[in-house]
Amino acid sequence: MITDPQKYFYVCDGKVLKDLVDMLAALREIDDETFAHHVNSEKNDFYNWTRDVLKDAPLAKKLSMTIDRAEMIAAVESREKVVSKNHKKKAVISQIQEAIASG
């Protein structure tokens, strides 16, 4: 999760995005006009933020290849699942480490 407010993604409808979960929710919820403001033939703000702020190269690569909303949602969904599993793994490993260290 991004903690520096200067690096948040400020959607033009007022939403503030801090991580992949926020981005996925925004892509699902924002209206077409808002989506078109950020994603059009000249730019893709979600791609830029993913690449430059989240520094998630695998997802950025997928987002660079489309401006179709459904495809972008599918790409973020897929990546979010992977990231979520990795976070869960780290949490479990951390708990195991703590338990053994305390024993």
Partner: peptide, 13 residues
């Protein structure tokens, strides 16, 4: 897997 990792960390400790 987690159970073996736990055993591994224990053995290492």
């Amino acid at each position: 897997d987690y159970p073996t990792l736990s055993s591994t960390l224990h053995a290492v400790t």
